[in-house]
Amino acid sequence: MIENTSGAVFINKPSGITSYKSLDTIKRKLATRKIGHTGTLDKFASGVMIVLTGKMTKLAGYFTGLDKDYEAVFSFGKETATLDPEGEVIAESGIPDLATIREKVKSFKGIIRQVPPAYSAIHINGKRAHEIARGGGTPDITEREVAIYTFQILSWKTPDLTVRIKCSKGTYIRSIARDLGRSCGSYAYVTSLKRTAVGKIRIEDTIDSNELDPENDIVRGKNLFSLLPDLQILSVNREIIPGILNGKKLDVKLFPGMDLSYPRFALFHEDDFVALISREMNRLKYNFVSGDLYGSYLG
């Protein structure tokens, strides 16, 4: 039995199973239900998923915000209801030439606006969009702004375009395929999708969940917090820890070396995680405090 299951596991989700189902093996091996992923991958998709466990599930919001890298295949000439291989074909058209596609790709770089797919996990009035769509309704999904940092064409073999895309959180690659197809006077959907990176974590850093070794594959402590952008890791003196654990008002003077250009700070005493705090204007506030240290530092 693993004494401390709090941390992160980086898995390579296979295609053919849902993101939720992919967590079953980890739950079983760690003997815990306190577990969650930080970004859904469609059932047909594969690739990097960051899975948080134990008390580190509180970090989910921070990891969800990380940029993502994908490799995908867009098939032109057809559009499916789900914009992926699992949906029925709802529209067909001619296939554009590569020159047209290259020209239109230019407008999909930088800050763009897109409407997420009808078959998605977006919440609308308490229901998932895909639940509404599968029930025969038309979900009213608001257009959103996302950032496309890079959009590379890797190959073209009619009708399939292989691409590499780096984008912000909340970007739907299926929506890009749909909108690119329509902008070319055609249709398109995603036939293959692999997430190759989440933030600093690349596909090479992941494991198959079936091969999880709880003793060695859980990422913890400073190694975990170093993956978050805009965060400074600070070492604190033992003397101030009881005050932090008791919620004492935070003062910059308590933290020599604090760089106020950062919005967030992970506090450590040696290898012990103490607290995550953040800065708003010139005031510091608690985000969450480690509950593992009370016996050691308040005894």
Score class of each variant (00 low, 15 high):
residue 220 R to I: 12
residue 128 R to P: 01
residue 46 S to N: 10
residue 248 K to M: 13
residue 193 L to S: 03
residue 97 D to W: 07
residue 210 N to M: 08
residue 90 I to N: 09
residue 151 F to M: 11
residue 175 S to Q: 10
residue 153 I to Q: 05
residue 128 R to W: 13
residue 100 T to R: 15
residue 232 Q to H: 08
residue 299 G to S: 14
residue 211 E to Q: 13
residue 241 I to G: 12
residue 256 P to V: 14
residue 83 L to I: 10
residue 109 K to E: 11
residue 109 K to S: 05
residue 51 V to C: 07
residue 190 V to K: 03
residue 151 F to Q: 05
residue 236 V to A: 10
residue 59 L to E: 04
residue 211 E to C: 09
residue 21 K to P: 00
residue 201 I to T: 13
residue 175 S to E: 04
residue 53 T to L: 03
residue 31 A to D: 14
residue 73 V to K: 10
residue 81 A to E: 15
residue 165 I to A: 00
residue 286 Y to G: 02
residue 151 F to T: 14
residue 78 K to A: 15
residue 236 V to W: 12
residue 287 N to Q: 13
residue 29 K to W: 04
residue 238 R to M: 10
residue 179 D to K: 02
residue 241 I to W: 00
residue 179 D to F: 07
residue 111 I to D: 12
residue 291 G to W: 08
residue 197 A to I: 08
residue 176 I to F: 01
residue 22 S to G: 06
residue 222 K to G: 09
residue 249 K to M: 05
residue 62 Y to D: 00
residue 178 R to G: 01
residue 229 P to C: 06
residue 42 D to A: 03
residue 284 L to V: 00
residue 106 K to W: 07
residue 92 E to M: 03
residue 100 T to E: 08
residue 133 A to F: 03
residue 90 I to M: 04
residue 10 F to V: 06
residue 222 K to E: 11
residue 83 L to W: 14
residue 285 K to Q: 14
residue 241 I to Q: 09
residue 206 T to N: 07
residue 25 T to G: 07
residue 51 V to A: 14
residue 183 S to M: 06
residue 106 K to C: 05
residue 149 Y to D: 08
residue 91 A to Y: 02
residue 73 V to I: 12
residue 283 R to T: 13
residue 143 E to C: 07
residue 113 R to L: 10
residue 231 L to S: 07
residue 167 C to E: 02
residue 250 L to T: 12
residue 226 S to Y: 03
residue 262 Y to R: 11
residue 292 D to W: 09
residue 97 D to Y: 02
residue 41 L to R: 03
residue 57 T to H: 03
residue 49 M to W: 11
residue 246 N to M: 13
residue 154 L to D: 07
residue 122 I to T: 14
residue 92 E to F: 06
residue 1 M to V: 15
residue 57 T to M: 05
residue 43 K to T: 14
residue 189 Y to I: 02
residue 53 T to I: 07
residue 173 I to V: 15
residue 73 V to L: 05
residue 74 F to G: 04
residue 203 I to D: 07
residue 273 F to L: 08
residue 262 Y to Q: 08
residue 127 K to V: 11
residue 115 V to M: 00
residue 139 P to W: 04
residue 290 S to Q: 05
residue 238 R to V: 01
residue 240 I to E: 12
residue 214 P to N: 03
residue 290 S to P: 00
residue 219 V to G: 11
residue 120 S to N: 05
residue 63 F to N: 02
residue 202 R to C: 03
residue 3 E to A: 13
residue 103 E to A: 10
residue 99 A to W: 00
residue 6 S to I: 09
residue 81 A to T: 14
residue 283 R to E: 15
residue 245 L to I: 06
residue 297 Y to R: 01
residue 205 D to F: 00
residue 273 F to P: 06
residue 52 L to R: 01
residue 153 I to H: 10
residue 288 F to M: 06
residue 245 L to G: 01
residue 240 I to W: 11
residue 288 F to E: 09
residue 168 S to I: 08
residue 21 K to F: 04
